[in-house]
Computed example of a mutant assay.
Amino acid sequence: MIAEEGRGPAEGVDSVLAALADSTRRQLLDVLAAQGEATATTLAERLPISRQAVVKHLAVLGAAGLVSGARVGREVRYAVRPAALDAAARWMATLAADWDRRLATIKRLAEAAEREES
């Protein structure tokens, strides 16, 4: 997991999941992933929301570590930062593996109990 400055790994995953809970932010990430980078104005042209709304959504994505903005002249160009998303995906994979182990144990116990009854 990545640990953001002053935050633990779980808090980083929490902020990623909270940011991804909004469909508009997921759309922004999709557009940025497809384009590589874009300005807030360009992103607003692709979505049914204002430039100001795009900027607010980008701020949430930026705070979660999912996008970064770089000033190029008078523009700020935003790009996807995959590290935070990768950390959240690793957390989910670990969680899934833990549940798989638990379910396998329950299955073994149930099968053993069934054999004992027979």
Rank of each mutant, 00 (worst) to 15 (best):
G8Q: 09
E111T: 05
T105L: 14
E111H: 08
T39F: 04
A40K: 04
R81S: 11
E45K: 12
A112Q: 14
I49W: 03
E75V: 06
P82K: 10
A83M: 01
R7A: 13
A83G: 05
R77D: 01
V54L: 05
S118I: 06
R115M: 08
S68N: 05
A84Q: 11
D22I: 07
R90H: 11
V80G: 02
V67W: 03
E5N: 09
S118M: 05
V60M: 01
T94H: 07
V55L: 14
A88S: 10
R25N: 10
R102M: 06
G69Q: 01
A87R: 08
A33M: 11
S68I: 01
A83L: 13
G6V: 09
K56L: 08
L109W: 02
V80N: 04
V54H: 06
A110V: 13
R71Y: 00
P48A: 02
D100E: 13
Q35E: 15
A88G: 11
G73Q: 07
P9R: 13
A18Q: 14
M92Y: 10
P9H: 07
K107P: 00
A79K: 14
R101H: 09
A70V: 08
D30C: 06
A53G: 05
A21F: 09
S15D: 12
D100V: 09
A110L: 12
G62A: 14
A104Q: 10
G62P: 01
R7I: 06
V31A: 14
R102F: 06
E11N: 03
G62T: 02
R7F: 11
R81M: 11
T39R: 05
A59C: 01
S23R: 15
A112H: 11
A18L: 15
R71C: 00
V60I: 09
A113C: 04
V80H: 06
D14A: 13
R71W: 01
G8E: 12
D98C: 05
L66F: 03
L32M: 14
R108T: 10
E114M: 06
D22N: 15
L17P: 03
